[in-house]
Every structure is written in structure tokens, then in C-alpha cells.
Write a protein that binds this DNA or RNA. Structure first.
Lengths: 200, 200
DNA sequence: ATAATAAAGTACTAAATGGTATAAAATGAA
DNA sequence: TTCATTTTATACCATTTAGTACTTTATTAT
């Protein structure tokens, strides 16, 4: 909303694509864990020089922030879409289970979950974003549960607040299991069965 | 069982206590995460020189192995004791919940869980030990569940194998949450409520 | 042409890491 | 007292890290 200074009139034309570097960083962090990937390695993989990266992102905190922000848009957005759909509570749960426990998208786990695990080692901007994403996801789950309650889909006497924390924890666990190469499908289904008390 | 070569007759008397260094390492890894603590830092904290540590432990893999092994004896042994007790299934679950979700012992989480998360960054001996501990704990939970089934305590139509994996995953999750500063008590209780279908 | 400008890469820095060569120190035996 | 032996710590090594000073290159304006 604030800057489109395109067509800078003078100087060497810029060849570095910030979005491309962000994408390389996002996938590198996602696959290998943010703490295991150096800024040097990302420069190599992206085929750009280190000063270029520092010019665009400031420092490594800027780069991890950009990578996580991009991840939130491209990947976590799919979770949000599910929670905000018009489907029934049961169908929403099914879709969340599929996306987190089966979809190849998360075969290496979830960048957000990995960054949250390494939160203390991240820079301040990235830490703040991790917290913001966590709140946002908790709100989304709360909304799902309160809508279900309003629609009469019994959530087994579980408060909306507890249910949202539980849903977030269980999906995070499943994504963590996938990062370790485990198949979380059955255990996640069992965990979410607490929401089906007398339902069909 | 194999060596007590005490009273070596010659040479400078040894002052380094291997057990003390192991203990310092264990607590440092436990609190800060194994990937965030360097061998240098442990040498400083333990007040010993680096070559001494290399002589005793070989390399960093040897040190992390020793630390995790010590942790398994001192801390995970308490879990094992609970699973092997003569208590009822429900009481065992209660004790496991208390130990992992409330006991100050795990206020910084669990070293095993942290090492498992960082498994790929650990040395081969440590990786092997992580796998062995995981199998052992799975066996312990399986035993608890099959005994409960034999004693008639209904575990809600959940197979022993799935129940054991589920119990391990949920306790691991709770310990992970404690490492992040969250209070897992309510969510863990909710997760384990799947074992109470028609029980009192 | 030439000057100004902006972005590019080369090549560096200081700090930290895991690991080691080596000499000093402390003992028992000769 | 001297020698062999064992453990110690100092001081190094190569590598990797985040971050930067500096020069070169490519463009527009004069």
C-alpha cells in the first residue's frame, strides 16, 4: 500500500527478484528446519550474492520473517480457507485432518511449527510473526467451534476456548510427526474423536 | 561390569569427574536444547578443558549420548516406574499426566523429546539411542494397555498398538508444550479422555 | 562523451565451532 | 634423583557463521 517506486530512472537495473529469494529460503527452511540452513546456503541456492540479500532483507531476521510470511500466505492460508468455509463441523475436521496428516504439501511438516519450535533462536521480527500467526490460528479454530456450537453440532461439552487450543495442539502434533517421518493419520483421528460424542 | 582399573599406579592423578561433566551437559542440553549448547560452553560450565572432555567422551556425539543416557536413567526411569506399577489403568494415566504436565521436573520440557526433534543433527550413537528409547517407551505403553485390557478396564475399542502410539504422542506433545512455556494440563486430560468410554 | 546513480559481485572481517598438537604438571618406580 | 607414565591445560587449526567495505558494471541524464 505504501511504495511502488518502479521505473527508477538511473543506475544499474535490478536483476534480483526478492520473491524468488524468499521462495528459495522458505523451501530450504521448510525442508531442513530454519536453524539448519545458513544465509550463505540460501544465497548459493538462489544464485545471488550475500550483499544483495542484505540489501533486500536487512539481516537474517528479515529473511526468516519474509520466508515465514510467505509461508503463511501460501500454505497456512489453505487452513484458513477450510475453517472459513460453509461446510459442516465434521467436514471441516475431515478436511483439516486430510490437509495436515495426508496431503503431500506437508510431507516435510510445517514451517510454522518448525519455527515455533526454534522460536527462541529466531530474530525479534520473526518471533513476533510467530506469535501473531499462533493467535490468528487460535482465533480461526475458536470461530469454527463457536459456529459449530451455535449450529447445534455437539462438541462434547468442551468449551470453545479449550477446544480451540486442543485443535491447534493436535494439528501441530500431526505436522510435527510428519516432519519426523511418522504417519499421524490414525492418532490424529483418535485425538479429534473427542469432538464426536453423540453425533452422526 | 567390565572395568574398574582404579588405583592406576603411575601418572598425574585424574581430577575430572566424568559423571559431573555428564550432569552439566545433561542439564545444559535439557534447558536450552541440545543444538543450542556448544561443547565449548559445556567445558566452561563444567570447569574442565576441552581435551579432557574429548579424552573422556571421544567427540560431541559421545557427550550427547552420555547426557541422554544419563537422562534416561534418572528421569525417564520415573515414567517406567509408573507404567510398571501395580496401580489401576486410570491411576497410571493420572500419574503420567501429573509427571509430564505438572511436575516441576519437566518445567523445561523433556531432553528426550528435544533430542528427538533435533535427531537429524545428532551423531550416530545418539541417534541410535533416541530410537532405542522410543522403542522402549512404546513397549512400556503397550504393556500398560494390554494389561488394562486383560483386567477388563475398557480402553474404548482402541487397539493396543494404536493406543500405545497415541499415549506416546500425547505425552510427547505435553512435554513439548511445557518447553514452550504452555500449560498442557487441560489439553492432555482431554486427549487421554478417549480411554474413558464407559468407565468409573 | 561523461557524470551521476544504483545495483552487482569479490573479498574481506570477527566470532564461534568441533577438534588436536603439544608442553607442563603430578605422580610412582628405578 | 631421575625416568616413565598419565592427566592436565594452553594454544592452536580449519571451517563456518552473520555481516560489510569496496570495486565493478550497467544504466539514465546532461
Amino acid at each position: 500500500m505504501n511504495e511502488v517506486p518502479k521505473k527508477s530512472r538511473r543506475g544499474r537495473p535490478k536483476t534480483l527478484k526478492k520473491a524468488d529469494v524468499t521462495d528459495v529460503a522458505m523451501h530450504a527452511y521448510w525442508e531442513n528446519g530454519p536453524a539448519e540452513v545458513s544465509l550463505n546456503a540460501i544465497c548459493q541456492q538462489a544464485g545471488v550474492s550475500k550483499p544483495s540479500v542484505y540489501r533486500e532483507f536487512g539481516n537474517d531476521d528479515g529473511l526468516t520473517h519474509a520466508a515465514l510470511s510467505s509461508y503463511a500466505d501460501k500454505v497456512l492460508g489453505k487452513m484458513l480457507t477450510i475453517t472459513q468455509s460453509e461446510d459442516s463441523f465434521a467436514r471441516k475436521l475431515n478436511q483439516l485432518v486430510h490437509l495436515s496428516a495426508e496431503d503431500v504439501l506437508h510431507e516435510h511438516g510445517c514451517l510454522f511449527v518448525k519455527m515455533r519450535t526454534a522460536k527462541a533462536q529466531m530474530g525479534p521480527k520473526t518471533q513476533e510473526l510467530i506469535g501473531a500467526i499462533e493467535s490468528m490460528s487460535l482465533d480461526a479454530f475458536s470461530k469454527v467451534l463457536s459456529e459449530a456450537r451455535a449450529a447445534g453440532s455437539g462438541s462434547g461439552g468442551i468449551s470453545v476456548e479449550l477446544g480451540a487450543r486442543y485443535l491447534q495442539a493436535q494439528i501441530g502434533l500431526a505436522l510435527d510427526q510428519r516432519a519426523r517421518g511418522e504417519d499421524p493419520k490414525e492418532t490424529l483421528a483418535l485425538a479429534l474423536s473427542v469432538f464426536n460424542t453423540a453425533d452422526t
